[in-house]
Amino acid sequence: MNKNLIRRTALVAIAGTASLALAACGSNDDTPAAHNSHASSPSASASAPGQHNAADVAFAQGMIPHHRQAVEMADLAPSRAESAEVKKLADEIKKAQDPEIKTLSGWLTAWGEQVPTEGAMDHSAHGMAGMMTAEEMDKLKASSGKAFDTVFLEMMIKHHEGAVAMAKTEKADGSFSDAKTMADAIITSQTAEITTMNNLLGKN
């Protein structure tokens, strides 16, 4: 009986050792797979920020002259507007859109795409939503006081609506994450400004 007990104990011990060995082998087999998955993920994530498509390029190339015109309109307010609220709004528009123009230009340069030149401002030729014609810009420049406030607000509402539409297209069709983030910010901020401008027009 003692010999049988010893044999059984030995067999149990051997079986336990074998199972440990198999477990160790299994963990060793998993290690290369784990390494392979880690090795592939950094390259994928590293390339993601640089991925862009035609919609991203169109967004940047369209939004630059669009923003430039908004800044041009805002620059008229300090010397022509009567309302302090209109002057403040114009200043906020300029502060928000000037940096975005620089960012958009930087993206296009990095992508090897053409950055719209400062002189390419034939407003009627762009065909973009919300862009003012040369005649409309002349009307704004010729206005002052309360009349300027009204024309500025009406034009800027239209301008903002165009920018929001362009930003929604970028969100739907673009692939560059930073551009989609900017588009989202444009939708949020300019929609809020449209509400503010409509309220200001109601006070006139």
Rank of each mutant, 00 (worst) to 15 (best):
residue 11 L to T: 07
residue 11 L to F: 12
residue 12 V to Y: 13
residue 14 I to V: 11
residue 15 A to L: 04
residue 15 A to I: 03
residue 16 G to P: 00
residue 16 G to V: 04
residue 17 T to F: 12
residue 17 T to Q: 06
residue 18 A to F: 07
residue 19 S to F: 12
residue 19 S to C: 08
residue 20 L to W: 03
residue 20 L to D: 00
residue 20 L to T: 08
residue 20 L to F: 06
residue 21 A to G: 09
residue 22 L to M: 14
residue 22 L to Y: 13
residue 22 L to V: 11
residue 22 L to T: 05
residue 23 A to S: 14
residue 23 A to I: 14
residue 23 A to V: 12
residue 26 G to Y: 07
residue 26 G to C: 08
residue 26 G to F: 05
residue 26 G to M: 08
residue 30 D to R: 11
residue 31 T to M: 11
residue 32 P to S: 05
residue 34 A to I: 06
residue 35 H to G: 00
residue 36 N to R: 14
residue 37 S to V: 10
residue 38 H to Q: 07
residue 39 A to T: 04
residue 41 S to H: 06
residue 42 P to N: 08
residue 43 S to R: 07
residue 43 S to G: 07
residue 44 A to M: 12
residue 45 S to E: 13
residue 46 A to H: 00
residue 47 S to Y: 00
residue 48 A to P: 04
residue 48 A to C: 01
residue 48 A to F: 09
residue 50 G to N: 11
residue 50 G to E: 06
residue 50 G to V: 00
residue 50 G to M: 11
residue 51 Q to G: 01
residue 51 Q to R: 14
residue 52 H to P: 05
residue 52 H to L: 01
residue 53 N to M: 13
residue 53 N to L: 14
residue 53 N to G: 15
residue 54 A to N: 15
residue 54 A to S: 15
residue 55 A to I: 02
residue 56 D to R: 09
residue 56 D to A: 10
residue 56 D to K: 08
residue 56 D to Q: 10
residue 57 V to N: 12
residue 58 A to P: 04
residue 58 A to K: 03
residue 61 Q to D: 05
residue 61 Q to Y: 03
residue 61 Q to P: 01
residue 61 Q to C: 03
residue 62 G to A: 01
residue 63 M to Y: 00
residue 63 M to F: 02
residue 64 I to G: 00
residue 64 I to P: 05
residue 65 P to T: 00
residue 65 P to N: 00
residue 66 H to W: 08
residue 66 H to E: 04
residue 66 H to A: 10
residue 67 H to P: 02
residue 67 H to T: 06
residue 68 R to V: 03
residue 69 Q to C: 01
residue 71 V to W: 06
residue 71 V to Y: 10
residue 73 M to V: 05
residue 73 M to S: 10
residue 73 M to T: 05
residue 74 A to H: 08
residue 75 D to P: 00
residue 75 D to C: 00
residue 76 L to E: 11
residue 77 A to E: 07
residue 77 A to N: 04
residue 77 A to T: 03
residue 77 A to W: 02
residue 78 P to H: 06
residue 79 S to P: 03
residue 81 A to T: 02
residue 81 A to K: 09
residue 81 A to W: 08
residue 81 A to M: 04
residue 82 E to S: 13
residue 83 S to M: 13
residue 83 S to N: 14
residue 83 S to L: 12
residue 84 A to H: 10
residue 85 E to F: 14
residue 86 V to P: 10
residue 86 V to A: 09
residue 86 V to M: 06
residue 87 K to N: 03
residue 87 K to H: 05
residue 90 A to K: 07
residue 91 D to V: 08
residue 91 D to E: 15
residue 91 D to C: 08
residue 92 E to K: 06
residue 92 E to P: 04
residue 93 I to T: 12
residue 93 I to F: 11
residue 93 I to K: 08
residue 94 K to R: 15
residue 96 A to W: 09
residue 96 A to P: 07
residue 97 Q to Y: 13
residue 97 Q to N: 14
residue 97 Q to W: 12
residue 97 Q to A: 13
residue 98 D to V: 14
residue 98 D to A: 15
residue 99 P to W: 12
residue 100 E to N: 07
residue 100 E to S: 01
residue 100 E to A: 11
residue 101 I to R: 02
residue 101 I to Q: 04
residue 102 K to D: 15
residue 102 K to T: 15
residue 104 L to P: 04
residue 105 S to W: 03
residue 105 S to M: 01
residue 105 S to K: 07
residue 106 G to W: 03
residue 107 W to A: 02
residue 108 L to K: 02
residue 109 T to S: 07
residue 109 T to N: 03
residue 111 W to G: 05
residue 111 W to H: 04
residue 111 W to M: 02
residue 113 E to M: 09
residue 113 E to R: 10
residue 113 E to L: 03
residue 113 E to W: 02
